[in-house]
Design a protein around this nucleic acid. Structure first.
Length: 864
RNA sequence: GGACGUUUAGCUCAGUGGUAGAGCGCUUCGUUCACAUCGAAGAGGUCACAGGUUCGAUCCCUGUAACGUCCACCA
């Protein structure tokens, strides 16, 4: 007989799911977890909806599931939340590729709406595949709480966080040099650049015969955008030129070049002088900022020249480079031409050479001071001034969040020290659209009702037919509103919004009709409104149409040209609160995918919708925020330490004044048997599903755990998996043997334990202590290894072997003792092995005839 | 250029201030007995190299080398 994982695993997973035990609320309700139990939370790092899972995901799922199952069995209120990530650029470019390949069309051919539908369809299919794979691994996730980074609760979280940061002045819009991907037509972050070594020519030349200083560059074509030459202030060679301005013509382009002194310049490198191209180099942009230099863009979004005569205009950068080099030679300005190896930045997704360009983008200021209202972060007091960088540094430095292995903490600090403002806008379509609207004034053909301030106000009914809701317009409790009688078209009262209901019609309590009055113009109305003191508030009775308008923003008159103001309210507004304009256009950019991912630990727990009302100790998702945040462990690959972990610490610190998690467990990369990265081009990708189909999820899990210390890469070979599959068979057979020797007739026989028996049971206890300690200190590989060897080489090879003769003996007390030892060790071992290899242990457990009556219905919720 | 990591059996990797460990592979033997997806026995290592601390170093320190990773980017 042998164990068949292919048959058993799906069946067992279904049982688990149907039992509801993955949901901590159910565990409490069914009495397997105490209501007052300590919580244990992990939020699953959401896999991208770009296709299928890889071995790295499998490792992640295995590790997290072990921690989750272990803690659940120890009686903690354990929650593991599943979800997926929309992965903006990654998903969009994948779908773009597919559409281009199949239909030869670009996203612009389809248009934003149609294209987004296609992406969503793809994301949905991908999501379903992923969920299936995640389940195949045996992950005990609470599917009732599944989240998506682009679903409605997460939208609310993103918009709330954006608005808060905007109001605090931490989010701003500005011109900066960004990494522009000319192929993908979007900005990309520093982390999305892949540097490639390349041989390039370094040219040393002078701008003109009269120009006194020679400079060097690898990109002569950008030199038509130069506005200065920077030298070190102490450089004796150039000191006399500092402050001078030269007018010259460079390859047909008129330039004004000023000589400036800057300490950043290395005297010993090249000629010791740098041609400053502010618009096409980050460093030069900063130099230009320091010296107040003009910054003219000379290369456009398609990496073509924007200036010059017919020689240069419209040419691609590489062509322009040759033209300029030829011109330099012709004019005898080229001094030196040498070959150097040079790292060139390319876009991770498209492979295009990144072109630094100045662009209007949204940024998060990481060094700007602001007041952190409620802080639970050590070293940062509530209400004190701090910066986002400081928050990121403090949480790890003070040990509130620990990173395993510890060496990554150094890397983390180093990264923070070098962090610049985070560019959060992307020129792609799939993602959270930037919640900022630009006011274009009043729509002339507005659908809104006529009235005193017709065109500019939304209508709000208290009747039953329409459900315009105040919150759709950005109104809040406490806003003052005006009412107009629909028949007479006169204003008759004011009110304060006392309640904004979640569903149906908003309830507005307004002042009674004694305030009725007609006003000739807006100014008169405002004066009256200001004088009005709403001491009396009554409930609405009238069927009159209500017109609502925010009082304090009356100061700006309605204008048909639009005020152009940028606003970042929570809900999509229909009118501009500044001027009443109705032509509002949302910013077309989307947010960096890590913006929404940064909120993940708390946006999945009901923030911000239920954050205020959540009550600790009460069941249900509405109280998750109080019950489960901060989370206990964040487990992921070390490759996204910066992308993600740092940003979660930032977002949680800023929005909640709290750490997102206590421990960061970083696993290594899963490599092939020869230690190579798994990649498509090498064709050495192993699909977790294939391994599961062949050897079972249990064996796959073990092979990803054993021999994998945190932060170290794991080499995975099929031999290894096969080895652990043999282990599952071994367990199955050992259990089978013990069961075979079970005799219910001996129930009342009192066992007579030998000294060896007692020694064996004592050793079991020791193993348990050791395994528990190992798991608690995240040495999963060590715990799994210990169990493996104990079960196979101590229990199966020695204890069972030595029990065989006793089990055949006529001495009932001795026979019973031998059996008791075996069954005790078996049961305890199954319990301890369950987090690692849940399927085979659960299968065996449920069929054990000698399980005690008081045991739990499933090993899943058995006590550790 | 800066930082970090790795170097232990043929291969892949654990590990510890006090006789070197596992899996796979290899050799020999065994098995109608829970299990051949097995059992027993065995071969195989200057723990990269050099120096230091120590009674004692594979482990701690310093340096060197090879390999790998991350960060920065240079006019």
């Amino acid at each position: 007989m042998s164990y068949n994982p292919q048959e058993s695993e799906p069946k067992i997973y279904k049982q688990w799911e149907e039992s509801g035990y993955f949901n901590p609320d159910v565990c409490v309700k069914k009495g397997v977890t105490k209501k007052t139990a300590e919580p244990f939370t992990i939020v699953l790092p959401p896999p991208n909806v770009t296709g299928r899972l890889h071995m790295g995901h499998a490792a992640m799922l295995a590790i997290e599931d072990i921690l989750v199952r272990f803690n659940r069995m120890r009686g903690k209120k354990t929650l593991w939340i599943p979800g997926t990530d929309h992965a903006a650029i990654a998903t969009q470019s994948k779908v773009e590729k597919i559409i281009y390949k199949e239909e030869g069309k670009s996203r612009y051919d389809l248009g934003r709406e149609v294209f987004l539908k296609r992406v969503e369809q793809y994301a949905q299919e991908s999501h379903d595949t992923i969920v299936h794979q995640v389940k195949s691994m045996g992950s005990s996730l609470d599917w009732s709480r599944e989240a998506y980074t682009l679903d409605e609760p997460r939208y609310l979280a993103v918009y709330t966080a954006f608005k808060n940061m905007y109001d605090d002045g931490l989010i701003y819009r500005g011109h900066r040099i960004v990494n522009w991907d000319p192929k993908g037509q979007t900005t990309i972050s520093d982390d999305e650049i892949v540097y490639q070594e390349q041989k390039t020519k370094l040219y040393t030349f002078k701008y003109s015969k009269d120009f006194p200083i020679a400079i060097a560059t690898t990109r002569p074509e950008t030199k038509v955008g130069d506005t200065a030459v920077a030298v070190h202030p102490d450089d004796t060679r150039y000191k006399k030129y500092i402050g001078q301005e030269y007018k010259l013509t460079f390859c047909g382009v008129p330039l004004t070049v000023k000589v400036v002194a800057d300490k950043e310049i290395d005297k010993t490198f090249g000629t010791g002088a740098v041609g400053v191209t502010p618009a096409h180099s980050t460093i030069d942009w900063e130099i230009a900022e320091r010296h107040n230099l003009p910054r003219s863009q000379v290369i456009d979004e398609k990496a073509r020249m924007m200036v010059g005569d017919e020689r240069l205009l419209g040419k691609k950068v590489l062509e322009a480079r040759e033209i300029i080099v030829a011109w330099l030679k012709e004019e005898n300005l080229l001094i030196k031409e040498e070959e150097i190896t040079h790292n060139i930045g390319t876009a991770e997704r498209t492979g295009a050479v990144v072109e630094p360009l100045p662009k209007l983008q949204w940024f998060i200021a990481v060094n700007k001071k602001f007041k952190l209202k409620n802080s639970k972060i050590k070293g940062i007091k509530s209400g004190s001034e701090t910066t986002l960088k400081e928050i990121m540094r403090a949480t790890v430095k003070n040990g509130q969040t620990k990173i395993l292995p510890k060496r990554f903490e150094k890397i983390y600090f180093h990264w923070i020290d070098n962090l610049r403002d985070w560019c959060i806008s992307r020129q792609i379509w799939y993602g959270h659209q930037v919640p900022a609207w630009y006011c274009g004034g009043v729509e002339k053909s507005s659908q809104l009702r006529m009235g005193f301030h017709k065109d500019v106000v939304p209508q709000v009914f208290d009747g039953k037919t329409k459900t315009y809701r105040l919150r759709d317009y950005g109104f809040k409790v406490g806003d003052k509103v005006l009412f107009e009688n629909s028949q007479t078209r006169t204003l008759f009262g004011y009110a304060i919004i006392t309640k904004i209901e979640e569903t149906r019609v908003d309830k507005i309590d307004y002042a009674d009709a004694t305030h009725y009055k007609t006003y000739k113009n807006l100014q008169e109305l405002i004066t009256a409104f200001k004088l009005w003191n709403p001491d009396k508030v009554v409930t609405a009775q009238s069927k009159a149409y209500l017109y609502a308008y925010e009082f304090h923003k009356f100061s700006k008159q309605d204008s048909s040209d639009g005020c152009g103001q940028i606003i970042a309210p929570l809900n999509k507004p229909k009118i501009c609160p500044a001027c009443g304009g109705t032509k509002l256009k949302q910013d077309s950019d989307t947010l960096d995918t890590w913006f929404s991912s940064g909120l993940w630990t708390f946006s999945t727990l009901g923030w911000p919708h239920f954050a205020e009302t959540a009550t600790r100790g009460e069941p249900g998702p509405k109280n998750d925020f109080a019950n489960y945040h901060p989370t206990n462990v964040l487990e992921t690959g070390y490759d996204i330490l910066f992308f993600w972990i740092a940003r979660m610490i930032l977002m949680s610190g800023y929005n909640l004044g709290e750490i997102p998690f206590e421990t960061v467990y970083l696993h290594g990369l899963v490599r092939d048997g020869q230690g190579r990265k798994m990649s498509k081009s090498l064709g050495n990708i192993v699909d977790p599903l294939d391994l599961i189909a062949k050897y079972g999820a249990d064996a796959t899990r073990l092979s990803l755990i054993i021999g994998a210390a945190p932060g170290n890469d794991v080499k995975l070979s099929e031999d290894k998996v096969r080895g652990y599959r043999n282990f599952t068979t071994k367990i199955w057979n050992a259990a089978h043997f013990v069961t075979m020797n079970y005799d219910p007739k001996f129930a009342k026989v009192k066992p007579k334990f030998t000294a060896a028996d007692k020694k064996d049971l004592l050793e079991l206890k020791k193993i348990k202590v050791q395994v528990t300690r190992d798991i608690e200190s995240f040495k999963l590989h060590s715990a799994a290894d210990t169990l493996y060897h104990y079960f196979w080489h101590t229990f199966a090879d020695k204890i069972i072997e030595s029990a065989k003769s006793r089990l055949k003996s006529e001495n009932k007390a001795d026979k019973k003792a031998a059996f008791e030892v075996l069954s005790t060790i078996l049961l305890t071992s199954l319990t301890m092995l369950h987090p690692f290899i849940p399927f085979v242990t659960e299968t065996i457990y449920q069929d054990l005839p000698f399980r005690k009556a008081k045991s739990r219905p499933m090993l899943l919720v058995e006590q550790w």
